[in-house]
Structures are given as C-alpha cells and as structure tokens.
C-alpha cells in the first residue's frame, strides 16, 4: 500500500467517527511517522505496513474519543425558573414592544378613519343639499341652482373621497397583515444569545 492510499483510507475512515480537528491531527501524525520511517531507510510499503492497518487505527481512534457530556436532568425546569425570575425585566420590555406595535397599527388606520369621516360628511351634507334644493328652487331659482350644484359637487367629492378611502383601506389592511406577520415571526425565528 502506498503512503497516499494509506492516508486517504485513514482520513476517510476517521470522518464521522472522530471530530474533524482530531481526524486532521491523526492523519498528519501518521503521515509524519511514515516519513520518519522512510528517512530511517525503510521502503514506502514497509513504512506503511509498520504503522498498521488503517481500519485498526480508525477503530482505535474512535474508541478513544470521549463521550459528549450528558444534558442536565431538567433543562426545561431551569428555563422556566429563569423566565419567572427575569419576568420584571423581559415583561416590561415585552409590554413596551407590544405598545409600540399597537401604536404603529393605530397610526396606520388613522388615514382610513380620516377618509371615512370626510367621505361620510361630504356625502351626507351634499346629499341633504341636493334633496332640499327643490324647495329653494321655488321662487328663487338662482339660489336653488347654486345649492343644487354645490350639493352635487359635495356629493361627488364625498364619493371620490370614499373611493380613495376604500383603496387606502385595502393598502392599510395589507400593512396591518404584514406588521402582525412580522410580529408572529419573532416568536418562531431562533435568536442568537450573546452572554
């Protein structure tokens, strides 16, 4: 077996059985051992044979790797204890964050609210002016005509603002959904903790 073949079999065998750093260290160690034997006068095949079978070396290395330490018995209990003890800090921050989100949502809906008020006021005022304009037309035609025209204009403006408010409401509904979807993802996304 050549040195290259030996090192390749050793590296492949170690992969998955020992940590990557340890595998690299072992391959370098046995490579140096083979090179030392060659320098001492052995042929490459003899040096590789003296080091041993790669499978045996992998088995020995896998046996010598210490087991990972077991998890604490009650990690959830500890987590809940920390949550309860830290409630005055994270609770206040959570309430503040909730208030900020609620304020953003409230600001978002101010536009449609103003639009709805204007639309209803213009529509009702204009509609009333149109409805009562026939009474004004009797006797004082020019005044009645002005009122009818102004009433129709206000009614049209009210409907136009109503249409714009409807479009704005659809946009705001999208913004509202995006905002709360973002808030919901904050609980699902894993966080990095720097301590």
């Amino acid at each position: 077996m050549t040195r290259e073949t030996f090192l390749m079999r050793l590296g492949t065998g170690l992969r998955g059985h020992v940590p990557a750093g340890e595998a690299k260290r072992l391959v370098a160690y046995y490579d140096e051992m083979i090179q030392d034997l060659i320098e001492d006068g052995s042929t490459e095949a003899d040096a590789v044979a003296q080091v041993g079978d790669p499978n045996d070396l992998v088995f020995a290395a896998a046996q010598s790797v210490p087991e990972t330490p077991s998890q604490p018995a009650h990690p959830r209990l500890l987590l809940w204890l920390l949550l309860i003890l830290g409630a005055p800090l994270w609770g206040a921050l959570a309430v503040a964050a909730l208030c900020v989100v609620a304020s953003l949502d409230l600001i978002l809906w101010c536009g449609p609210l103003i639009g709805a008020c204007l639309a209803s006021g213009f529509t009702l005022g204009g509609g009333l002016a149109v409805v009562v304009s026939p009474f004004a037309l009797i006797g004082t035609f020019d005044y009645g005509l002005t009122q009818l025209g102004a009433g129709l204009l206000l009614l049209g403006a009210g409907l136009l603002i109503g249409w714009a408010t409807w479009q704005l409401t659809r946009l705001c509904w999208r913004g509202h959904a995006l905002l709360f979807r973002w808030v919901a993802t904050q609980w699902q996304r894993p966080k990095a903790v720097f301590a």
Partner: peptide, 10 residues
C-alpha cells in the same frame, strides 16, 4: 361626473 356637473350648475 357629479363633481363636474355640480360645478357647472353651481
């Protein structure tokens, strides 16, 4: 239409 017609009448 209402705005234009109303403006003309007014």
């Amino acid at each position: 239409g209402l705005i234009v017609f109303g403006a003309v009448l007014a």
